[in-house]
Design a binder for these strands. Sequence first.
DNA 1: TCGTCTAGACCGAACGATCGGTCTAGACAA
DNA 2: TTGTCTAGACCGATCGTTCGGTCTAGACGA
Lengths: 208, 208
Amino acid sequence: MDGERSTREGLLAPLLEAFRTYGFDGVSLSRLSKETGLGKASLYHHFPGGKGEMAMAVMALSSAWLETEVFSVLEGAGDPAARLDQVLEAFQSFYQRGGKSCLLDVMPIGGGPDVRAMVKALMQRLIAGFERLALDAGMEPTEAVSRAELALVCLQGSLVVSRGLGDAAPFRHQIESLRKGFLSAEGNGRAPRESGHFRPGSGRRGGS
Amino acid sequence: MDGERSTREGLLAPLLEAFRTYGFDGVSLSRLSKETGLGKASLYHHFPGGKGEMAMAVMALSSAWLETEVFSVLEGAGDPAARLDQVLEAFQSFYQRGGKSCLLDVMPIGGGPDVRAMVKALMQRLIAGFERLALDAGMEPTEAVSRAELALVCLQGSLVVSRGLGDAAPFRHQIESLRKGFLSAEGNGRAPRESGHFRPGSGRRGGS
DNA sequence: TCGTCTAGACCGAACGATCGGTCTAGACAA
DNA sequence: TTGTCTAGACCGATCGTTCGGTCTAGACGA
């Protein structure tokens, strides 16, 4: 339940867990106290700014994680397909294969203006990162930005749907779809030439 | 600010607006009172079950809207492309072209078990509806379910991203992408043969 | 080595405000 | 009059926050 008390850094993990599970409004100081194993007053010792500062600290932690595990890979060197695999693997572990929600989804509701600003900046950076990967793979610029936006959309959307259904399958599907489709000509729709490729007009039209 | 007070039905619109803006935990009875123009006691006259019943009523309203504007179209007769256009248009107006959040995203956090159950049921029905549309267009069964799931993912994800960026463009893009790509062979990635189709391997590999 | 001092991590108790919810009583149409 | 609908005062509980003070570990002088 507690992860290294007595240091502000050690508190961030349980705080992150609580914030992304219950959202900013849904989490109370009592809950944060219970989750971290520290009294409320002790939390204020580490985060004098209160709940808002804890939220920002959790955002900063995620930002740092994104920096090392995602941005640096997307914007780094190496085979684009391998880089894609690497960041998708990182996302899978971060979201526990679809079982957890994303701060970029749950925090802007209730979180203050600074939280929203950071959410916006991170989303922009994520899109830019995927765009860079697409460009490195030789994709056309307009196509690259579209597909980068789609990648973030699929990530966020699949997490929302997985949470709503109580089933992580949609998240897994989208990860797999991104892996196979993000750099291919067909786009993210489905992987190319899987068992039985869909041919338009091969079936009936209209009927109820 | 108020939409037909004095009738439970007339209260649902402002309640829906408040719930999807602030989320279940973020909305307070004082806010609901202000938004509807009714005192708290008056709200309890119409919704004896309190906040939870209001949330369920708002979910039921959305469910009814989905039934008439989406499910009946997706599962009805007529040209699949026209049906697709119709439901996408309905979604655009419901979410005010990307400016509003979706209850299916914001309500399961903090909403009670019954709210979560309804979210799950609606999501399942949405996927089933899109699947039906794809099947009616002659798509293969396995492809139809994948694409139906992707449609819901893109809808939800684009709303999340649009909210995070404070820019409705991603929502508009995904709507347009679904309109052009949902029934086509290439999938939702991008519309087929737009100006300059991406060719894989046409550029450098490796990269920066 | 011992005692004192300091710094900081920690907590119980309580703050005022607001939470979701209830009670009472008046307004008004039938 | 009866029943429906309304507002505002009010309830206990919990909210985020703060205060006063304890405990522990290390520094330092004697």
